[in-house]
Simulated scan of single mutants.
Amino acid sequence: MHEFITVAVFDYPHEIAVLKHLLEQQEIRYFFENETMMNIAPMYSQALGGIRLKVHPDDVETVQEILKKLNNDTNLKIV
C-alpha cells in the first residue's frame, strides 16, 4: 500500500459513497485513508487533511476519468 497514490481528497464520508460503488464496479484497487476517523469524529477533517482516495499507480488514469465524469454529470456531483 505504500506505493498507492493520492488522487483526491474529500472532507466528509458522505462524499465518497457513490464513488466507492463506481470504483468497485471497475475493479479498481483503492482505499480511503482517514475514512474511519472521519466517521467517528467528523470535526477532525481539517486537522487530518481530509479523506484521501489512494489508488494503485496503474489505475490513476481510470480513476481520474471516473472523477471527471462524476463531477461533470448534471444529476450527480461530489460536493
Score class of each variant (00 low, 15 high):
His2Trp: 05
His2Asp: 15
Glu3Leu: 03
Glu3Cys: 09
Phe4Leu: 08
Ile5Met: 06
Thr6Trp: 11
Thr6Lys: 07
Val7Asp: 10
Val7Trp: 05
Val7Glu: 14
Ala8Thr: 01
Val9Lys: 15
Val9Phe: 03
Phe10Pro: 12
Asp11Pro: 01
Tyr12Gln: 15
Pro13Leu: 08
His14Ile: 10
His14Tyr: 15
His14Met: 06
Glu15Asp: 12
Ile16Gln: 02
Ile16Asn: 08
Val18Cys: 04
Val18Arg: 08
Val18Leu: 09
Val18Ile: 13
Leu19Lys: 00
Lys20Arg: 07
Lys20Leu: 01
Leu22Ala: 06
Leu22Val: 09
Leu23Phe: 05
Gln25Asn: 08
Gln26Val: 04
Ile28Trp: 00
Arg29Thr: 07
Arg29Met: 08
Tyr30Thr: 07
Tyr30Arg: 04
Tyr30Ala: 12
Phe32Gly: 08
Phe32Glu: 02
Glu33Gln: 14
Asn34Ile: 03
Asn34Cys: 06
Asn34Val: 12
Glu35Ala: 02
Thr36His: 06
Met37Val: 15
Asn39Pro: 00
Asn39Ser: 06
Ile40Tyr: 15
Ala41Tyr: 15
Tyr44Lys: 13
Tyr44Glu: 14
Ser45Ala: 15
Ser45Ile: 10
Ser45Pro: 07
Ser45Arg: 12
Gln46Thr: 03
Gln46Asp: 04
Ala47Lys: 10
Ala47Thr: 13
Leu48Trp: 06
Gly49Glu: 08
Gly49Leu: 09
Gly49Trp: 12
Gly49Val: 14
Gly50Val: 03
Gly50Asp: 02
Ile51Met: 13
Ile51Arg: 03
Arg52Gly: 11
Arg52Ile: 05
Leu53Cys: 08
Leu53His: 04
Lys54Val: 06
Val55Pro: 06
Val55Thr: 10
Val55Gln: 05
Pro57Tyr: 09
Pro57Ser: 11
Asp58Leu: 08
Asp59Ser: 14
Asp59Pro: 12
Val60Asn: 10
Glu61Ala: 13
Glu61Asn: 06
Glu61Val: 07
Glu61Gln: 14
Val63Asn: 03
Val63Glu: 07
Gln64Glu: 13
Gln64Leu: 05
Glu65His: 05
Glu65Val: 04
Glu65Tyr: 10
Ile66Phe: 08
Leu67Gln: 04
Lys68Ala: 14
Lys68Tyr: 10
Lys69His: 14
Leu70Pro: 07
Leu70Phe: 15
Asn71Glu: 02
Asn72Gly: 07
Asn72Cys: 06
Asp73Leu: 14
Thr74Pro: 13
Thr74Ser: 09
Asn75Ile: 06
Asn75Met: 08
Ile78Asn: 04
Val79Pro: 15
Val79Asp: 14
